[in-house]
Amino acid sequence: MKILVVEDEPNNMILMKIILKKHGHEPIEAFTGAQGLEKASDSNPDIVLMDLRLPDMEGFEVTRRIREIRSDTPIIAVTSYSMDDVREEITKGGFSGLIQKPIDPGTLMDEIMKILRLE
C-alpha cells in the first residue's frame, strides 16, 4: 500500500517509515501540510497518516483539504493529545482513525489493518 505520512518531526517520520516498510508498505513522506497536500494529489496514496501538529497548517485543515480532492482516502490522525481530549474532533474532522504518540508499532499496524479491512 502507498501510505502518505505527514509528519514534521524527522525522528517520528523515520520510525513510521521503518514500521511501514517492515510491513511491506510504501511510505511517502511529507514534512509540511503543503507537502502533504501536494503528495496527496500527486501520488494518490491509499492511506494518509496525519500528524495533527504541523508547522504550516493544523492537521485538521490539511485533512479537510485532502478530503476536497480525495474524499475517500482514509486518513489516520497521529497525535500526542490523549484520546479522550480529541476523540470528538477526530470524528468530526473526517478522520478514519486515531493513533496516539508515542507510537507503538503494534498499535499503528493494528489501526492500519483495521482501516484496510474496512475497505
Binding site: S80, K101, P102
Partner: peptide
Amino acid sequence: SHELRTPLNSVIGFSSMLLEGYS
C-alpha cells in the same frame, strides 16, 4: 509539554521498534 513529549516519542517509539525486532 509538547517539547517534553516529542523526544520521548522517539525514545519510546524506537525502543519499541527495536524490541519488536524491526531492525
